[in-house]
Design a protein around this nucleic acid. Sequence first.
DNA 1: GGCTGTTTAAGGACTC
DNA 2: GAGTCCTTAAACAGCC
Length: 435
Amino acid sequence: RRRAHCVEEGRKGGRGLREQPHSGGLCLDDSLTSLQWLQEFSILGPSRQQSPLFGHVAAGCHLDAPSSPLAGDPACAGTPLTPGKPTAAAHSRVPLPGIVAVGHCPDDVDYQTNPYVKPPYSYATLICMAMHASKKSKITLSSIYTWITDNFCYYRHADPTWQNSIRHNLSLNKCFIKVPRQKDEPGKGGFWRIDPQYAERLLSGAYKKRRPPPVQINPALQNRLRLTLPPPCLTNLSVSLESHLLLRQFEEAIGADQNYDPRLGEGTMLGSWPDERGRRKRKLASKNRSKKLQKRSSSPLLSTEEPRHLGPLKGDFDWDAILDSALSGELSLEEGGEPLSPTQDELTVRGTHICPIEVEVEAGPGDMHILVETQRGRDIDEETFLATAFLEEPWSEAEEHRQADFLSTSSVNLEQLFDLGGALSGDSVRMDGLL
DNA sequence: GGCTGTTTAAGGACTC
DNA sequence: GAGTCCTTAAACAGCC
């Protein structure tokens, strides 16, 4: 099937997913037998070199390496995020900003720059993060807001009702204690701190995390995304089309679409927003609604916004770094020393056991679905793990550099992962109607 | 008026 | 299915 696919690509005269300068008529490349695909593996995903398949959907946000929380924020960019010409570079990097298709576990998404994916952390966790990041015993509500918006791009563009949820959490959650402002202290509102009792629980990992919800796309950006990705742009996505063909073949080979459930798409990616899933949408009083709209329209978050500085996520909260630091060992083979064939069912990346992924593509005229099954049964309580890792092991510059070095040279070649042939189980991310 | 803080209500998802 | 947790929405009051 691969050969047929390549022959088909050659017949069309188009560029395949992989340039095969030495193919000699055969498209089988070394990736099938080499470990290059492993070397290109990326934990981070969007900000680094992407696989040919997902580069065009995940790398755009980072065409320019962000130097600040907002620098890489595509939603803050003044220029429309239209796909570039299908140059060699753009061929696999059509800037569809930050949509993450490589799973939506925290280590797959750069939440600092990705405005489309809602962070999988509860509000309580976000508050805890902000409090710890402040390195102060108490923190104001506005500082919490600031920290969250600085470190989670999603909330910079989200409807400000999340702030109501934050306040609601602070008031209701026993973890948080209000510290009244002294009379001689200027400013509004009081301070908040974490109840040490619950802080200990946090540190001990007592908090349980729910299964992360399907990827939620910021509704405030959905329209923009659609505008920047008109159907014609698909023509620039030859990679994805080719990938689709390949995936289709893959599907046929493994019968993947037997498990395909069209309803799944409703809860993910563009169709994932709760309101679009039939979630109750309370009727806003016209008064409040107009006020709200005015608020949103005037929000600097939807315009070019100068970054504010409050302990950025990169630094104290580089999840990937935390993950990295918490994990032991470098990229290694499961049993060590054994050559890793792409057909192996399992592998270990930097000490982390990784199940193969399963990629499904469902395509119809004008419609393309990509389902990436990531590690199912990842029993690690990621949120707790990451939070506690942060609390116990603050970020260091040296670690950041080390991490950057590793990540800059690592990305995953999904196409080659397809060749694993094994099923990657786990949370699924679907790109439904995106392309 | 806007922000802060509290409270109530309701729905979805998850656990047991 | 019940209970729980989380989220969202909304109303309201107090403060600056």
